[in-house]
Design a protein around this nucleic acid. Structure first.
Lengths: 210, 210
DNA sequence: TGAATGCTTTGATGTAGGTCAAAAGGGGTG
DNA sequence: CACCCCTTTTGACCTACATCAAAGCATTCA
């Protein structure tokens, strides 16, 4: 137990806008988010980039770096945040001795793979409003799982970042928000969102494509 | 060594069109492809599905099932194939004793995560012809890594399956193929592809979006 | 071998979302 | 408190891709 404690010993604070790591940085530690809100950005050679995920308390970051020993994306704090640094070599060593820790690590990596499949489905098959609905419900569910309100929260990211994640332009996000508000599905005012009708929002996914 | 051998002891043959596993099946074994060609399909509750990846000799399948203990996608043989079954519990056990095996497993899972980021970029930011070019170059590179020709190969999947993977309709794929052929980038005749100008194909990615 | 079936190509037309533009709202900073 | 800059909203227009349709080819299975 003391050794597991040592695993999560080291803290690091980040100011809003600060990078936790950048593509190309060598892998030394994984990061568990203790508080705050972050995004990861996948980058293409030609300079294009896309938000690959939004991350909050409890999420583990840096798994992309294990394959090559270097990070393959950027991680940026969207608000002041605190992470705890987990030396990867030590994590591997300890997980050899603790089967439950080992299994937990595998489950976390697998969960990330499954999440990615979900994003592919979203990007490959859904229409704009479906994507935004899925995004909002996903956020809602994750806030709820952490003890926050499922129906009322502040967005930490801009419309442009939401758009990047969903493969859409910021104007499209803005229009979709307005439409959801018109239809009494949600209330949006700038970064603040209240979900008024989660059920209809859920229904909206899947009904749009004939 | 003998114990590692035992890990990859069990073979299974699949006929073209046969399912290796389906979403919902409990996780028992992972699968290493020995020969043949497969696709995995992510599914959404509402029945929509999308090809999440194409897999060939040497690829490891089933990692999506570790998180929940059940498979989260379908795996289907696109031609007669042979896989070898790797009992997951035994793999975990053995990797506790063999650090290099453990690390290898982690790298493979991480590589899948990185691959998924690439697909997100493709689906989120690229135009139709860029996607197809990226797809062809990726296939080419993987065939080359396995000792096959990088410039000439047979597609095992239909236009519809390529389209599903790339978030496009089969007609769009067909038109893009025709256009590439006109421009002397490739020769296509049904399933047979010859890449005539890999360099220009590579250049094409990134030039399309202003 | 030949009929059946599934795949592919190509054309004509429609539309969701992108692009461009302008104005308004907020929040951080000096 | 006031300024500046970043973000957001909304409108008008445009384009890439989807959709619909029909014909042409392969592959398969009897």
């Amino acid at each position: 137990m003391a050794r597991v404690d040592r695993l999560v010993n080291h803290r690091r604070k980040l100011r809003r806008g600060e990078h936790l790591y950048r593509a190309g940085n060598p892998l030394a530690v994984l990061y568990a988010i203790r508080s705050g809100f972050m995004k990861t950005c996948a980058l293409h050679d030609d300079g294009r980039e896309q938000v690959a995920g939004f991350h909050m308390m409890g999420d583990l970051l840096g798994l992309d770096a294990i394959s090559s020993g270097r990070h393959m994306c950027d991680a940026v704090a969207l608000e002041d945040s605190e992470v705890c640094e987990i030396p990867f070599a030590y994590l591997e060593q300890l997980s050899r001795e603790l089967p439950s820790l080992q299994h937990q690590l595998h489950r976390i990596m697998s969960r990330e793979i499954v999440r990615d499949y979900g994003v592919m489905l979203l990007l490959g098959t859904m229409k704009a409003e479906e994507r935004l609905a899925a995004f909002l419900l996903n956020l809602s569910q994750r806030f709820a799982a952490r003890g926050y309100s499922a129906t009322e929260f502040n967005l930490r990211m801009t419309r442009e970042e939401i758009g990047s994640y969903l493969g859409l332009k910021l104007e499209t996000i803005s229009r979709a928000f307005s439409r959801f508000q018109q239809d009494n599905l949600i209330e949006v005012r700038h970064k603040h969102v209240r979900i008024r009708d989660p059920e209809r929002l859920r229904l909206l996914i899947g009904q749009q494509c004939p």
